[in-house]
Computed example of a mutant assay.
Amino acid sequence: MLRKLDHKNMGKSNLGWLRSIFHFSFAEYFNPTNINFGALRVINDDLIESMEGFDTHPHQDMEIISYVIDGELTHQDSMGNKRTLSRGEVQYMSAGTGVFHSEHNFGNKLLRLLQIWVYPDKKGYEPNYGDYRFPWELRKNKWLPIVSGQQGNAPIKINQDANFYVVELEKGNEITFEVNKDRQAYLVQIEGESQINDINMNAKDGLEIVEENINIKATENSSHILVIEMKKA
């Protein structure tokens, strides 16, 4: 089963310094039929103006992954971490029993990132932070595993049976992705355009995939894609 979610119909917010597209219910956007997709609770496509950001605030019992698309993201938290990440780099924070953090754009250009929340497999984990600076070429025309569950093979591991992959597919190239029985996946067309099976995907669109393999063809320039694969709800 495949179901496209057109970004033009998603929830949106414009606070001036922050412009967001919400793949699922978040903040002032509430849709009771669109709360989550399995363990996946939040995907926010955020644009943050220079010298702006989220001041210190708390989180608890959530696995939080940030994927930087363009610009620079500076993270600081109550565990003593302070890091700045750029395009294609990933940070992870397990909020667990509770943590405070801030996220800012201290660069001189617009920051775009995907903010992703995944329910943990249980509550009460010890808070944890990590990040990884993936060389861009590792995702050229091939899947790059960036996040996995504790038993997976990605360098960033979360407390949930969920696996994150990214690819930048050059125009005209094709790649497949398997979603097996009792598994589901959510795909974000980050940049560019693709044809996925018989569905045309534009930048910022989403795609729900349940127990179905897909073939992706880049149709316009390069196609930058994220897939989050997990157990079926």
Rank of each mutant, 00 (worst) to 15 (best):
S86P: 00
E126T: 14
N44I: 07
V167P: 08
K8S: 15
I158S: 01
L111E: 02
F22Y: 09
T74Y: 01
M62S: 14
D77T: 01
L85K: 01
L73F: 08
K231H: 12
L85D: 02
G71I: 06
E103C: 04
R87E: 15
G96R: 13
N105F: 01
M62N: 07
A95Q: 05
E103F: 03
F22R: 01
H7C: 08
Y186I: 06
S13P: 00
K171G: 09
I65S: 04
L2K: 13
L5Y: 12
S13E: 11
Y165C: 03
K231C: 09
H7F: 12
S66E: 09
R3C: 09
K181Q: 14
F24D: 02
N213Y: 11
D121C: 03
N215Y: 00
H101Q: 06
V166M: 12
L111K: 03
G98Y: 03
Y186V: 03
E208L: 13
S222I: 14
H75W: 03
A95E: 08
N221T: 13
S86H: 05
S50N: 14
K4S: 11
D198T: 10
V188D: 01
I175G: 00
E191N: 14
Y92K: 05
N202C: 11
K12G: 13
S86M: 04
S223N: 15
N81I: 00
W143G: 09
L15G: 11
S102L: 09
E220C: 11
E229S: 15
D46P: 02
Y67N: 05
Y67I: 02
E193G: 08
Y92A: 05
L207E: 13
G124N: 08
A185P: 11
A218G: 08
G124S: 05
N108Y: 02
L144M: 09
K12T: 15
S194Q: 07
S20K: 04
K109R: 15
G149R: 00
Y119M: 14
N202D: 14
I214G: 09
E170N: 13
E168W: 00
N128T: 05
E89K: 05
H59L: 11
Q151V: 04
Y67F: 09
G130Q: 10
Q60M: 15
I35T: 04
E72K: 09
I199D: 12
N202E: 15
Y132N: 13
I35G: 00
A203F: 03
